[in-house]
């Protein structure tokens, strides 16, 4: 990982890419760190995160946008990284589940998943957390329906969803309380 400053990042987003030599230079910011890597343009964002950056949080399950296990936050929006080419993330900001904890401490949202038993095997959990994170970022006080709609793109074979729903709802309340205190 190299460091370049913000101005360069923006310049790169606008940059015209034409890769006739089958390798392209991808510059983006992942969990706050600037990353510059040479990649094949056919590489998926999911594979870039897992294979190249060794961030194993995002999972590959269906590989076609149906299950949400590969959900990450791209420029503030929850997206399925299995349906995005890595090079499409040029100049963008990506957050994966690895970016949620701060200084080794789980975030409120993550803690609520633990307290509410919102996971069993844990395979869906990183994706669930990223959908929930994006939801609470755009809407800190979601209604029950909004929580269900925001999480509907993530499948879980274990929990039956109720615990996940509870965790998101509790996290929303705790995050709002935390915000009011500060």
């Amino acid at each position: 990982m190299t460091n370049i400053d913000d101005k360069d990042m923006c310049a790169m987003e606008a940059a015209h890419i034409n890769s006739k030599n089958r390798q392209v230079l991808l510059t983006c910011r992942v969990n706050g760190q600037v990353v510059v890597e040479e990649i094949d343009p056919t590489m998926l964002l999911l594979h870039f995160l897992r294979d190249r950056l060794k961030l194993f949080g995002a999972k590959e399950a269906c590989g076609e946008g149906e299950c949400g296990a590969c959900t990450v936050i791209l420029n503030g929006e929850a997206v399925t990284s299995c349906l995005i080419l890595a090079i499409e993330a040029q100049g963008s900001e990506i957050t994966t589940v690895e970016g949620l904890s701060k200084n080794g401490e789980l975030s409120i949202l993550q803690q609520q998943f633990v307290f509410e038993d919102a996971l069993q095997c844990g395979f869906c959990t990183p994706g669930m957390l990223m959908s929930a994170r994006a939801l609470l970022d755009r809407n800190p006080d979601p209604t029950d329906e909004e929580i269900m709609e925001g999480m509907a793109g993530n499948l879980c074979r274990c929990t039956g969803y109720q615990q996940i729903f509870n965790a998101v709802k509790c996290a929303a309340r705790l995050e709002r309380e935390e915000l009011n205190r500060s």
């Binding site: 946008g65 929850a78 997206v79 349906l83 925001g150 793109g153």
Partner: peptide
């Protein structure tokens, strides 16, 4: 149409 994540793209 589809899920929230997909509708973002």
């Amino acid at each position: 149409l589809a899920s929230y994540q997909l509708r973002n793209r």
